[in-house]
Design a protein around this nucleic acid. Structure first.
Lengths: 338, 338
DNA sequence: TGGGCTTATGTTATCGGTAACATAACTGAG
DNA sequence: CTCAGTTATGTTACCGATAACATAAGCCCA
C-alpha cells in the first residue's frame, strides 16, 4: 500500500468528468439544493459512470468529526444476550446512518483496555461497553476524550457517562425470594466465572442477601471456572458436587448451566422439580426447549442495546439523555420449579 | 461538530510537550528504532500525560490505505451460525490488529446493496459477505474497487473474489439419502424463507435430487414465510400442514424449526422417531437439549469465519489465497430419527 | 583532519475531502 | 439603466497524520 488508494475513484475524477471542481461535487453530495439542476444531473451521471463512493475517512477528518461509527465492546457474540444487545443497538443506529464497530473482549478486562485504546484511534462517536467495572486507565481515557459512553447490563451511580441496565443483585434477590416463597429451604447457588464476570458477582450478593432475610442457610457456593461463554456441559459437570450439599433447589447464573444440570439430573434419575427445583438466568431460547421448561429471570437484552443506542445518538446531537436507565427484568415461572 | 475534534489531543500537542516536531512523534509511534532513546522517552511521557490516541483516520488517509478494518455483512447475529462466523472472523483478525465492522442485512438483498455502498465509504480493506447471490450492481462495485471479498456459507465457481463454504445442495442431498437409508419412504421437506435465503433454496434442490435418485416421492414442499431469523414456533405451527402429506420423516432446513416440530409432535402424541423421524440443519446447541436429541447436519460456522479472515488477510498482504475453500459438513445422527 | 557514512530530526507536499470566504453571472425593483 | 441581492461555482486553507527528501551532527578510518 504505497501512496494511493487501490482502485477507488476520487472525487476529482468525478469532477473532471462533469466539468466542475471537486467542491461542486462535494456540494452535490451533501446539499444538492445548492447545485444547479443541470450540473447536478451531470455530476450524478459522472458518479454512476465512475462508481464513485465517497471517502468517509477523508470527509470525517475534514469535517472534524468522527466517522459516524459507534463502537460496541461485548464479551462475546456467542452468548445470545449480547447478540440481542447488538441487534438492539444496530436497530437504533441504522436509521441515523451510523455504523457499528464490534469488539469481543472474551470477558477479559485487559482485552477491554486494549480494545478501547485501539478503537479510540478510529474516533468513534460513541461507545457501548458491557458491565460497569473497568480499569481506572480506561475510565480516565474515556472521560477525558469526552465521547458518549454507555455502560450496560448493570447499574451504578458512578458511570463514566451513562448506564443502561438493571440490577443483577436485585434480580437474583428476587428470584431467590421467589424460590423461598415456593417452599424451597436449601437453595444452592452456582455462579459463572465471578472473577471475570461482575454480573455473576452481583447476583451472588443478591442471593446471599435474600437467604439472610429469609433465614435460610447459605450453602457452599459453586463457581464455574472457565472465563468463556457458558457451556451446557459445565452445568452437567458441576451437578454432582452441588448435590453433595443436599439442596432442594439450585439457582444457576445462566440458563445454559441450568439446562445442563436438568439433563444430568435426568440421567441420574432425579426428578425435576419434584425432588430438585432448578432455576436459571437470562430466559434464553433453550429455556423453553428443555423439559421441564426452565424457570428463569427474563432480562431485556435487546432493549438494553436499543436504549443505549438512542441515548448515545441523543448525546451526539447535544440533546439530553438520562444518566441512568433502568430496564425491567422479570421472573418467569415455568416447570423446573414447583 | 465544527472544525475541531472534541477533546482528542493531537500529535502536535504531544510534540510540543516533548520538544520535537510531529514527524518525530509519528516515527516514535511507528518505527521507534529510528528515534533516539532519550527522545523516545520524552515522547512516551508526553503521550501518557496528554492521553494521546493516534487518529487512525488521518493516518490511513495519509498512508493511502484503508483503516485496518474488515467489514462483515451477515443476515443477523441472532442466528448462532452467523454469530459463530463472526467469532471465527474476529479471532483471525485480532492478532493482526484489524477491526471488525459489522452490518446486519436482515436477509434483505436491498439492504445488503445499501450497506455495501455505505461501508465502502469507510474504505475497509476486506469484505465478508453471506451467500453467493447478489445484485449485479454490488458485484460490479466490489470488483471494480478491487477490495478482497470473501463470500461465505455456499460455494460457487464464479465468486466476486473468493468463497469459503460448503455445498448446501450436497449437504441436503446427503441428509436425504441418509434418511432414505434408514428406511424412510415419505420424506417431507420444510424450507426456510427460500425467496430471501438462497441456502434454503439450494437445500431444496439437493433434497429433490436425492429423492429422484432414490425413487421416492416428492411430497408437497412447505416454506416458512417470514424473512427473519427462524423461530421455534414457526416449526410447531407448520407441523399440522406437513402431517397432511402423511410423511414418515420431515427434514427441516433449520434445527430451530425441527425443535418446534418435535415439541408440537409431543403435544399431539406423535412418537418421534417411532412414528415420525425428524431431521434438522446446523447442529445448534438446542439440538442436544431437545428430547429426543436431534439428527442434523453439522456445519462449520466458526471455521468459515476464521478461514475467510485468514484469506482476506493473505490477500491484503499480497500472498496467494485460494479462490475456493470448501469446508466439510457432516451428518450427525441422534435420536430424532430411527 | 577531512570527506564519506550513519544517525537523528526537520521540512515540504500530500492523502481526499469540507468550511469559509470570494467571485461571477443573473435577477428585479426603483 | 443601475445597484443591491440572489444563485451557482470557484479558491484557499486546513483536518491530522505520513512519505520522501533534506539537513545537521556525530563517527570512523585513511
Amino acid at each position: 500500500m504505497t501512496k494511493r488508494e487501490k482502485n477507488f475513484p476520487r472525487m476529482a475524477e468525478v469532477a473532471k468528468l462533469a466539468g466542475v471542481t471537486v467542491m461542486t461535487v462535494s456540494r452535490a453530495l451533501r446539499s444538492p439544493a445548492k447545485v444547479a439542476p443541470d450540473t447536478l444531473k451531470r455530476i450524478r451521471a459522472a458518479i454512476d459512470k465512475t462508481g464513485y463512493v465517497p471517502n468517509a475517512l477523508a470527509g470525517a477528518l475534514s469535517a472534524g468529526g468522527g466517522g459516524k461509527t459507534i463502537t460496541a465492546l461485548i464479551p462475546t457474540v456467542q452468548h445470545a444476550i449480547f447478540a440481542d444487545t447488538i441487534t438492539g443497538l444496530s436497530a437504533a443506529l441504522r436509521p441515523e446512518g451510523y455504523h457499528l464497530v464490534l469488539g469481543e473482549t472474551g470477558y477479559l478486562s485487559e482485552e477491554e483496555d486494549a480494545l478501547v485504546a485501539a478503537f479510540l484511534s478510529r474516533r468513534p462517536e460513541g461507545f457501548l461497553l458491557t458491565g460497569v467495572t473497568r480499569s481506572p486507565r480506561t475510565r480516565d481515557l474515556l472521560k477525558r476524550v469526552g465521547v458518549p459512553v454507555v455502560e450496560t447490563w448493570e447499574l451504578t451511580n458512578t458511570p463514566i457517562d451513562m448506564v443502561v441496565g438493571y440490577s443483577n443483585e436485585k434480580a437474583a434477590h428476587e428470584m431467590t425470594v421467589w424460590l423461598a416463597g415456593r417452599g424451597y429451604k436449601r437453595i444452592a447457588f452456582v455462579s459463572g466465572p465471578s472473577r471475570t464476570n461482575e454480573r455473576a458477582r452481583r447476583r451472588e450478593i443478591g442471593y446471599r442477601r435474600a437467604l439472610k432475610e429469609q433465614g435460610l442457610p447459605v450453602l457452599k457456593i459453586f463457581t464455574i471456572g472457565a472465563p468463556a461463554a457458558p457451556q451446557v456441559e459445565d452445568g452437567a459437570a458441576i451437578l454432582p458436587e452441588v448435590l453433595a450439599e443436599k439442596p432442594d433447589a439450585i439457582f444457576f447464573t445462566s440458563d445454559i448451566y441450568a439446562v445442563g444440570a436438568i439433563q444430568e439430573a435426568r440421567r441420574r434419575g432425579i426428578a425435576v422439580p419434584k425432588e430438585l427445583g432448578i432455576a436459571g438466568f437470562h430466559d434464553l431460547a433453550i429455556a423453553t426447549v428443555i423439559e421441564p421448561k426452565l424457570t428463569t429471570v427474563h432480562v431485556p437484552g435487546r432493549e438494553i442495546g436499543y436504549i443505549a443506542g438512542r441515548n448515545i445518538l441523543a448525546r451526539i446531537r447535544g440533546e439530553p439523555a438520562p444518566q441512568l436507565s433502568a430496564i425491567p427484568f422479570s421472573i418467569v415461572a415455568r416447570d423446573s420449579t414447583k
